[in-house]
Design a protein around this nucleic acid. Structure first.
Lengths: 333, 333
DNA sequence: TTGAAAGCGATACCAG
DNA sequence: CTGGTATCGCTTTCAA
């Protein structure tokens, strides 16, 4: 209240020590909760802390001790609910261990992702959960790992980085989708692949082909276009497919934007088709057309990633682990 | 590569200086990009940096300079898309200024929110964007503000904290909703309020009442129940309303979970009703029943919050500002 | 232009 | 039990 404008310098342990009439080390002990300080001194220190409104400077502490009690989560786009949930789960888990989580959003642009990743890495956090575009330059991550900073890769592997990993079982998921459709009598099934040359897209596409083969069915390349996640572009492709002699009666998609775009395309050209989408859709029950989906569980992925990281941070020296999480068929008719 | 297991100590500026054969300060200057170092020395230092794989320890830097180049964003739940988008927008804006963003998710539980908030505050970041449950204990935030850490409150005010604020114009939004329905000929309009005693809920409810009054219509208390965001609980309430002599022909809701729950309730009891929901719905175009909404723009809110914060961080000493952002009627029939 | 040296605020080892 | 004191790694005068 006195000296209202001049930003009052924050109290340090030295100030507390002076006011309490004890040594600096004693204050440090009290703050750290170390046992072995006489009760009356503890009280005096605590009173001084309250009076001066002291909070310890974590930067100094970190500089001295080297640990940050913080883990970093870098996801491609936080505005994507999948990643938001993933990040949230990591945070919840880490928090229960008293750690803080620095969440950073990297953007789809590999250049920018590299910068964000760099700036997080330079924070020397205790561990990192990483989901970035596959083209991102992550060469220095390996150095971090060998430098002792544990890293967990989620959703997709990164070339040149050997680390613990948490992935969805993409192939099994596609198998679930195909099994479901075949059980309903479909034999001409198409697969809309969201992109090419990326881990999840390729894995799901391959999974589709394998699942079809397992049923003795042919995965016709004509029915497996790589489609941009845009209804206006999907509609003509779909229409052309349906105009052939042997049109598909069902479609499987490889991610949720594609599922939504396909739903819009189907509506636009008023087609009749079964559809199974990879990744669950929120509020699918409210949709005009029911959609069966293959649900991944982002929260579960986040928990596993956090778990793995905590284990490494605690110094457990187990071999590199790859956790592959199952998916679930959510049937809606 | 040599000495593979013993975690190699990270190189420091001192190491770089030694290898490059220059003084410590020179290395610091090169790293900081300060002008006035002879080109050949710059080169030598850079070579040494590359060789030793040096990265500056930000904690030491922060300890010395006092600024973290990091802002904190605390939101109630990151798994809520609204907040995820908000946080993402802050991050994008901050990043373009070279700042990092620490995003923390606080949970709906005020106790836990308090702890998260505390731990973020103890990080002494350059600024904070805060959205926490209204019951959260934020007494110490005011100290932070007077201690020089700028804070921006988003979405809702917090008792006892005088800071810059970014809110949606809740009353005007409700007015948009009512105007729209009245223009369609509705006069008996209900309002499902998601809770009581919270800023947004109260503001929207009051806005509804005022908007009705502006049309000379009565906002019947019977038609303004406080409903839990659950279709099973809303259905009987709605059914009872419709069974009266003078049933509503339209409903306005005060947030998106309520909108969705109401959609489900309407479907469950097969009612015929117009509906306008506060907060836009993703993929509303794919829904069985079209829903007109009042859209807030979380990204815009985030940008404004970041802008305000940057301004304060730069030391602009303007009076406290309250930014009220407009909402938009998204008509779907 | 450059280097030496004094801190930033905590921790932790050592005597007492 | 307690209090000095030497760091942690960097920035920033201050002289040279």
């Amino acid at each position: 209240m006195t000296d209202a404008n001049a930003t009052p310098r924050r109290a340090t342990m030295k100030d507390v020590a002076a006011l309490a009439g004890v040594g600096l080390s004693t204050v440090s002990r009290v703050v750290a909760g170390t046992a072995g300080v006489r009760a009356d001194k503890v009280r005096r220190v605590e009173r001084a802390i309250a009076e001066l409104n002291f909070t310890r400077n974590d930067f100094a502490r970190t500089l001295r001790t080297g640990n940050t009690a913080t883990i970093g989560v870098i996801v491609t786009r936080l505005s994507d609910p999948f990643f938001a949930q993933l990040a949230h789960a990591v945070q919840e888990r880490a928090q229960s261990e008293g750690m803080l989580v620095l969440i950073a959003s990297a953007s789809d642009d590999p250049e920018q992702a590299t910068r964000v990743l760099q700036s997080v890495v330079s924070r020397r956090l205790d561990g990192l959960v990483v989901v970035v575009p596959e083209q991102t330059d992550v060469s220095y991550l390996q150095q971090e790992i060998s430098g002792g900073t544990p890293i967990v890769l989620v959703d997709r592997p990164m070339a040149g980085v050997v680390a613990d990993e948490v992935f969805a079982d993409n192939a099994a998921g596609m198998s679930l989708a195909v099994d479901h459709l075949v059980a309903q009598g479909h034999t001409r099934i198409g697969c809309f692949v969201h992109t090419i040359g990326e881990f999840t897209a390729d894995a799901r596409r391959d999974g589709f082909v394998a699942a079809m083969a397992a049923h003795g069915l042919d995965a016709d390349a004509e029915l497996m276009p790589t489609v941009i996640e845009d209804a206006a572009l999907i509609a003509p492709v779909l229409q052309a497919m349906l105009a052939t002699d042997d049109p598909p009666t069902a479609i499987v998609t490889t991610n949720s934007p594609t599922t939504k775009a396909t739903l819009r395309a189907i509506r636009a050209i008023d087609a009749t088709l079964a559809l199974v989408g990879f990744d669950d859709l929120d509020d699918a029950d409210l949709m005009e057309r029911s959609v069966t989906t293959i649900a991944q569980d982002p929260a579960n992925m986040g928990q596993h990633a956090a778990e793995l990281l905590m284990m490494r941070i605690r110094g457990i020296d187990a071999p590199i682990r790859r956790v592959v999480l199952g998916t679930r068929l959510v049937t809606r008719s």
